[in-house]
């Protein structure tokens, strides 16, 4: 089994508009999806959700405020899963709730430290 980092990107404006009740509604599909991965023993690390605000530190010492890419492609969070191949990892990502709100999942294999 290999490990894969799933990176979730979505429109950063989306979360900000949600009421607490709507937030609750957003949480359930995430819990169900991650619970489903965990039930298959394929969740290696439950990762984290990331705050919208951030900073970027550059090589010349300049610090800029984020977001740093298109607002619509802002990093929202990540998890690590176990899968036999990149193809399987991508297949498992299809159930991710981020897809239903216009976001996307980037799947990258983790290279073990030598």
């Amino acid at each position: 089994m290999n490990e894969f980092l799933l990176i979730f990107r979505r429109d950063a404006g989306f979360d900000a508009q949600l009421t607490p009740a709507q937030m609750q509604e957003v949480t359930k599909p995430w819990q169900d999806w991650m619970g489903g991965l965990a039930a298959q023993n394929k969740l290696a690390n439950s990762g984290a959700r990331l705050a919208v605000d951030g900073k970027v530190v550059k090589s010349d010492g300049v610090i800029t405020n984020g977001p740093y890419v298109e607002v619509k492609e802002a990093l929202g969070g990540f998890i690590i899963i176990r899968a036999a191949s990149l193809e399987e990892a991508a297949e498992l990502s299809k159930g991710c709730p981020i897809l239903s709100t216009g976001g996307n999942v980037e799947v990258r294999q983790i290279v073990p430290m030598q």
């Binding site: 359930k28 819990q31 169900d32 991650m34 619970g35 965990a38 039930a39 298959q40 023993n41 969740l43």
Partner: peptide
């Protein structure tokens, strides 16, 4: 119960919980 099992599995896998 479903949501609690989700949380439990995310915390720690076990066949019974699955």
């Amino acid at each position: 119960i479903l949501q609690l099992y989700n949380k439990l599995l995310i915390l720690e896998y076990s066949p019974m919980a699955a």
